Amino acid sequence: MSSRRSRISEEEINELISKLHSLLPESRRRSGASRASAAKLLKETCSYIKSLNREVNDLSDRLSDLMATMDTNSAQAEIIRELLRS
């Protein structure tokens, strides 16, 4: 069974790297260098995604703690449920 893989041109790779770079927050971008290497950019992106994941987990834990101490029939609980449905 042979599978055909479409090749991505160097120009497409450069465009994707540029788009990825633009998605990183300013604090994660390397200043001074007009363009970071693809490997460094990928490492920075992985690091940023891991930090976002930690933040999501922390916020989820905090929300769970808040919901555990709240009356489930309260107006605040209903607001939180509506926000989570959005």
Rank of each mutant, 00 (worst) to 15 (best):
T72F: 01
L59G: 02
S37V: 01
L24T: 06
T72A: 12
M1S: 15
A39R: 13
L83D: 07
I79R: 14
D58M: 06
R28G: 00
E82C: 05
D61F: 10
H21R: 15
R4D: 06
D61W: 05
L20D: 09
K50M: 08
E12W: 06
S2K: 10
L84Y: 01
R4F: 12
S60A: 11
L24I: 10
L66Y: 03
D61Q: 12
R62H: 01
R85F: 06
Y48A: 06
R62D: 02
R85A: 15
R81M: 05
S6C: 04
E82M: 10
T69K: 13
D61P: 00
E12F: 01
N14P: 00
H21K: 12
I13W: 12
I80V: 15
K50D: 15
I80Q: 02
R30G: 05
R7T: 04
S34G: 13
A77N: 01
R7V: 07
K43S: 10
I80S: 03
R85P: 00
L66P: 03
L16E: 13
D71W: 04
T72N: 08
S60K: 12
D58T: 08
L83G: 10
R30L: 08
S47Q: 13
D71M: 01
S74H: 06
I80K: 07
L23D: 07
I17M: 13
E55Y: 09
S27F: 08
R5Q: 10
M70K: 03
A36N: 02
R5G: 05
M67T: 01
S51V: 08
R35F: 05
R5I: 09
S3T: 06
N53M: 07
R29W: 07
C46F: 11
Q76T: 13
S2R: 11
R35I: 04
K43G: 00
R85L: 14
N53T: 11
S22R: 13
R29P: 01
E15P: 00
E44T: 13
M67Q: 03
S60W: 03
N57C: 03
A77F: 06
D71S: 09
K43L: 12
N73F: 08
D65T: 03
L83W: 11
L20W: 09
R35A: 11
T45E: 08
R7K: 11
Y48W: 15
H21N: 14
S6V: 14
R62W: 05
V56M: 09
R28M: 15
A77M: 03
R28P: 00
M67N: 02
R81E: 12
K40C: 02
R81C: 02
S27C: 06
E26H: 12
K40V: 07
A68I: 00
R81P: 00
A68Q: 05
D61K: 11
R54Y: 09
P25G: 04
N57I: 02
M67K: 08
A33L: 05
S9C: 04
L59T: 03
I13L: 14
S22C: 06
R35P: 00
R62E: 01
D65Y: 05
R7H: 08
I8R: 12
I8K: 10
S74L: 04
L41M: 12
T45S: 15
S51Q: 13
L84M: 11
R5H: 11
E78P: 00
S27E: 15
Q76L: 13
A77T: 01
E11G: 03
R4W: 05
Y48V: 02
N57L: 10
M67L: 15
N53P: 00
I13K: 13
S86R: 14
I80L: 15
